[in-house]
Each structure stands twice: as C-alpha cells, then as structure tokens.
Amino acid sequence: MRDLFYAGPLSPEIGALLEQAMGAYADTAKAEQLLRQAWDEAPEALPVYFSLYKFYFYKGRLEEAEAAARAALASAARQGGFPEDYERLTPDTTDWGRYDSPQHFYLFSLKALAFIRLRQGDLAGCRKILAKLNELDRADTVGGSVIGAMAAGL
C-alpha cells in the first residue's frame, strides 16, 4: 500500500488501474472503464475519487465531475468522522491542518467543487464554497486562493 494525494492508502492493484486509466486518457471509454473498475474495487479509496473528478472535468463533463467531487466529499467526511455538508463545518469541527488525512482531502475536493461550479457559470455558488473553504483552510494549504482569484476576475 502507498499513499497518494495525501488521501490515504492505495493498494498497488488500484494504483495500477489509475495509472492505466491515465495512459488510456485519449480513449475516453477505456479510461472511464478503468476508473470505474478502480472505484468498484475500492469504493473508499480517496485517490480514485480524485482521479474521477479530474477525468470528468478535463473531458468537459462537468455534471459528472461535480457528482464525483460531491461523492469524494461524502467519502472523506465519513472517513474523517465529520458531517459531509460543508455548510455545517467550522474550523473547530476537526483538525483541518493534517495533510495526510481525509480532512485535507475534503478541503482539496471542496476547492475542486468550487472550480467546477465556476466552470459551470455558477459564480455565486463558487464564491459560497470558497468562503467556506477560506474559513476552514485559513493557511490556504489547498490553494483555494487560486480559484478565488479566477472568480474575482469575472
């Protein structure tokens, strides 16, 4: 097992599926099939969620990217033992500063969700998510300020 994307352990088999999916990126159907296989075999592996929402985002399939990001948030919250609804979270909900934790992956996925909402044209939704991200990640460890700068330019 190895850690990937500070999101927890990943078995060599699942890591291999993700690498195969990256290698097959140009063949959308094949890459998606490999990602879905990884998710079927390891439904709580956070790096699989990361790979899914990035894949869908870069393929321009924003609704599916959003669904994958929201599923990532739900899984990270379950694993971290805190509510999945970001609106209910506070800086005191959990230790948001642990880089090797589901909490940090949650923050990273929240940033991804903000970017997806921005690309969908939902500036208000993006800003709402970023406001919460800024509250939870005051040190900007996941780079939410980058998305904030993009949103401010619109």
Rank of each mutant, 00 (worst) to 15 (best):
G148N: 07
G121K: 12
A112R: 07
E41W: 01
A26D: 10
L34V: 03
E63V: 09
L34N: 01
P12A: 11
M150H: 00
P9E: 10
A38I: 00
K128F: 04
G148Q: 07
Y25C: 00
Y106P: 11
E66R: 15
R98T: 01
Y6Q: 10
E135N: 01
F5S: 15
R98K: 08
I14R: 01
E84Q: 15
G143W: 13
F105V: 13
E13V: 06
Y6S: 11
L107H: 07
A68S: 15
A38C: 05
K59S: 01
Y106H: 13
G125I: 14
D92K: 12
Q120A: 06
Q37P: 09
Y25L: 04
A71I: 07
Y58Q: 10
L35T: 01
E63G: 08
G23W: 01
G125N: 12
K111Q: 10
S11W: 05
G148E: 08
D122P: 11
A24S: 12
S101M: 02
D95C: 03
Y106I: 14
D137W: 09
K132E: 03
G144Q: 05
E64N: 12
K128P: 02
Y99N: 09
V48F: 09
A112K: 08
F5H: 15
L89H: 10
Q37E: 15
G125A: 12
A38F: 02
T90N: 04
Y25K: 05
Y86I: 01
R88L: 14
T141P: 01
Q120P: 07
T94I: 11
R138G: 03
I147P: 06
P43L: 01
G144P: 12
S109R: 07
R88A: 11
Y106Q: 12
G60N: 04
A112F: 03
D95Q: 13
D27S: 12
G80C: 10
L110C: 05
A26N: 12
K128S: 10
V48T: 11
A31V: 04
M1F: 07
D100G: 14
M1H: 11
N134W: 11
T141Q: 14
R61I: 14
G60M: 07
A68R: 08
A67N: 10
A69V: 05
A114V: 06
R117L: 13
F82W: 13
D140W: 08
F108N: 06
L73K: 03
K54D: 09
A31Y: 04
L133W: 05
A7P: 05
A68H: 09
D85M: 08
G15Q: 15
A77I: 07
M150S: 00
D95K: 13
